[in-house]
Design a protein around this nucleic acid. Structure first.
Lengths: 137, 137
DNA sequence: CCTCAATCTCTTGCATACAAGATACTATAT
DNA sequence: ATATAGTATCTTGTATGCAAGAGATTGAGG
């Protein structure tokens, strides 16, 4: 009988919990949640993505995205525009407010990464990331 | 500028997503969610824990536990009893139904672990678990 | 015995998350 | 031109997850 303490699902869930908590703390100054920040990062990489494209990039259901998008629009981080060529598609663009915050935002993420992996050597970091990618594919 | 794809918080979140999804699939036959299963495992280790003790063991807020506990009681997996010595404490006990299911449940968890870590050698599994524990302490 | 701080549980409010279905629009085949 | 299959988004319902506060009970000190 395996204890839940050796259950890989449980161990990942708790590592996830701690990681989210640290990032959440660093993002509080911006009034952003980790997921909202990730949402913005995908647009920083390529502005004007459709809702579905954002979902595929950050691996999120459109049902979940709808709520996040609404809150981001209300908070003034992004704006939603209908695609002129395809009436089904809603495209999302970063606002100026978002663009101005990106540098500081990236610094917060960098700090979070360093804090979480403080006790890891360079080789361990790479190995850990490989493991995370290799889980189930 | 770090891409979100190299962000350790994002990578853990997505590994978490995949792990939850696999376990969820294996638990569907029981009508249990991963968290409800974890809840039961803590009681399997020590029956009659208080709500707060369960929360500390599986690292969950009592606000979250309240809802989970309600659903588990309704589904007949556990029962709630007032502690005779301390009027503030609610203790939780596994039902016979839960006891009978534990062996099969453990097998599902075992299958999930193997499936998730299929491509890992024994050394890699141990290393990965150490990394997960070492994240931020 | 009484007060008060500590503890335990519960409730409310907000933010993910996903399944499943509804709706609107596009593209394809006839 | 039109039926239809496909695609994109949105909505609803259920289940976590945490912060903050309310309510009940206990225990320690005076």
């Amino acid at each position: 009988m395996i204890s839940y303490r050796d259950n890989i699902v449980f161990m990942i869930a708790k590592a996830h919990q701690r990681a989210q908590s640290v990032l959440k703390g660093h993002l509080q100054a911006f009034g952003l949640t980790p997921m909202q920040c990730l949402f913005m990062e995908s647009l920083w990489e390529e502005d004007g993505l459709s809702v579905g494209e954002i979902g595929r990039r950050i691996a999120l259901d459109t049902a979940t995205l709808a709520g996040i998008l609404d809150r981001m629009v209300t908070a003034g981080w992004v704006r939603r525009e209908a695609d002129p060529d395809d009436g089904r598609v809603a495209r999302v663009y970063l606002t100026d407010k978002a663009g101005s915050a990106m540098t500081e935002l990236a610094a917060s993420i960098e700090r979070t990464n360093n804090e979480l992996l403080k006790s890891f050597s360079m080789e361990e970091k790479l190995l850990f990331k490989r493991f995370l990618r290799d889980i189930k594919e």
